[in-house]
């Protein structure tokens, strides 16, 4: 069985300053990585023979409008069937430069996951073979999962945000 510390140590040795923010909420190793090193990191985890973290479970995005310079986050969930080990890899992006390299060259499944993330958040995956909207219609000119589009009509005054915990 792989331990979180062991994998974290190897990643630090291999990638040095490019990786940061190690954490393991609910026993799931979480690591942040720079945009340049994200694909090398995923490839390293996939090809390292003792890890074989070679299944891409999920790609999604998160929007943090209040943290300046790190407004958007792309989250990758990776899984090793051999070792039953999961890793969460995060890439933080600034809202002025929403580019991240595509993972489609490593995983075919990344295709639609990245399209969905683009559709909902507007994050551009460089090198993606077919980066179009997938769930929403093509004519749509905004990315609906961003926090600046609140679900309810912002002009309504009878609904107070605090009551809904936001």
């Amino acid at each position: 069985m792989l331990s979180n510390e062991e994998v974290a140590q190897t990643i630090i040795q291999q990638f040095g300053d490019a990786v940061s923010d190690f954490d393991d909420p609910f026993d799931l190793l979480t690591v942040s990585v720079t945009r340049e090193q994200v694909i090398p990191l995923i490839q390293y985890l996939k090809e390292q023979p003792s890890y074989q973290i070679s299944f891409l479970t999920d790609i999604t995005g998160v929007h943090y409008p209040d943290s300046s310079g790190r407004e958007f986050c792309v989250v990758y969930h990776l899984h090793s069937f051999i070792n039953n080990f999961r890793v969460r890899v995060k890439v933080y992006l600034s809202k002025d430069d929403l580019h991240v390299p595509t993972a489609t060259k490593l995983y075919l499944s990344a295709n639609w996951m990245e399209r969905e993330t683009f559709d909902l958040f507007g994050i551009i995956f460089d090198g993606h073979p077919d980066l179009r909207r997938i769930l929403n219609m093509e004519e749509m000119d905004y990315h609906p999962m961003r926090k600046e589009y609140p679900l309810e009509d912002a002009t309504r005054e009878d609904k107070i945000d605090a009551l809904f915990g936001r």
Binding site: D58, H77, S109, W112, E116
Partner: peptide, 9 residues
Amino acid sequence: RRPCFIYYQ
């Protein structure tokens, strides 16, 4: 993570 969405591609 919806399994259909991922494998239908």
